[in-house]
Each structure stands twice: as C-alpha cells, then as structure tokens.
Amino acid sequence: MISINSLEKKFGRLTALDQVTLQLKGGKSYALIGPNGSGKTTLIKSILGLVVPTSGSILFEDKPILYDWKYRDKIGYMPQIGRYPENMRVGQLFEMMKHIRPGKQKVDEELLDAFKLYKIFDKRMHALSGGTRQKVSAALAFLFHAPVLILDEPTAGLDPVSVELLKEKIIQEKRRGKLLIITSHILNDLDEIATEMVYMFEGRIQYNNSIESLKAETNEVKLTKAIATLIRQRELLESVTE
C-alpha cells in the first residue's frame, strides 16, 4: 500500500533518514521503534507529506505523494504532541475537522464516546491536560474510517483505562484489515497490537520482519526481551566488523 524507496532527508548537516526503503502492506500492523532521534517521526511526517524528502520517493497506492494531497484522505494521523488552535473549543475542533473532510458521510465516533469527550466539548483547547489532548488526537485519527492509521506514541500520557480502550480500538481496526503504523516506547503495548517490527537507528532501518520471526530468532517470548537481545546482537556484530 505504501512503498518507500531510498528515502533520504537531511536537515542541514544532520541526516535524519538515510536510504530508507520499506514496504508497508494493508492488513498489517507495523511497530516503528528505535531510540530518540532515530528518524521515526521524520519518516512518519514524510509519509504525511509534512516533511519534503531530500531524495527518494514515497508511493501511496503506487502513486508518488510529492506535492499531492488527496491521498491523505485515506490516512488518519495521531501526532505525538497534538497541536491545535488554542482558542478553539473541543466541539468546534471536531466540527471543523468534519467540515474540512466532508467526503465521509459516516464518522466513527466510538472513541469519542469511549473517552466521554462530549462532556468537555465546550472547553477550550488550551485548558486541556496532556492526557485529554491525547484522547482528542486519538478520536480525531479514527474519526474518518481511514484505511491507513498512523499513530505516533499513542499511549504516552494516557491513563491505564484509556490505554486499554485505545488498544482495543486499535486491535479492532487491525482486524478490519487496516494498515497501522505505530511508534511507541512502551514495547509491552506494541506486543499486543503490532504484527511487524521496523527498528530504526540513526536514520537507517536496522531490522524489518514480523514480530513472530523476531521472537523466534532471539529465542525470547516477550517483545521487550527480544528487542533487547536484538540490539545486543547488532552491537556485537558491529564491534566485530570494525
């Protein structure tokens, strides 16, 4: 569904993405992990067209996305830090988003209900706590039945109950055959919701396989352990080659 070919992005001297090549297929759920500054967010923003790549290309359903915008109709995006017009009320925000994306007749308001966001519809965005803001972001991402969902740190800052609600929603959408791209530091959460794993380090993709085969390779049952082992293996390998 999304095909990324030798994507490179430089911010001045810093190389944020270095020859990234990646195929993302519908019906799968990708966990995008890596340390801070490894290029996860840049990759996501590139897919969204918020960041314009230095070279390489991204194809969405076989069409290049550069300077195109219509393909974003098929993407629901939950940013890491949701930034919204501060003077706007929550209700107005939802109203506006529906207004801006008028194509969809039926909207998915399950999360809206689950998080009980109706109760704070008349609050202004600047009055919201970080967690509530995350809830708003999540509800917006799922609102339009988009076939591709990109969730940047979806569970960060959420209370345990909400985390569970969100996870349920994600699993449910995964079952519906959607393509999910999720970044998270909380690997336990990913264990349940992701099927594939993409590990990034210093702008490069270091590992890209299903979580099952990762676990098999590393002889670990838990994803956390498996990744830790993977990293250790890699470091060993590097020291040998050097």
Binding site: L48, G49, L50, W69, K70, Y71, R72, D73, I75, Y77, P79, R83, Y84, P85, E86, M97, I100, R101, G103
Partner: peptide
Amino acid sequence: EFIELMLAQP
C-alpha cells in the same frame, strides 16, 4: 498548530 493540523488532512 492550525497549519500543522490542516496539512495532515487531505
């Protein structure tokens, strides 16, 4: 923020 929000939309 508004611009960012808009640009993630179609």
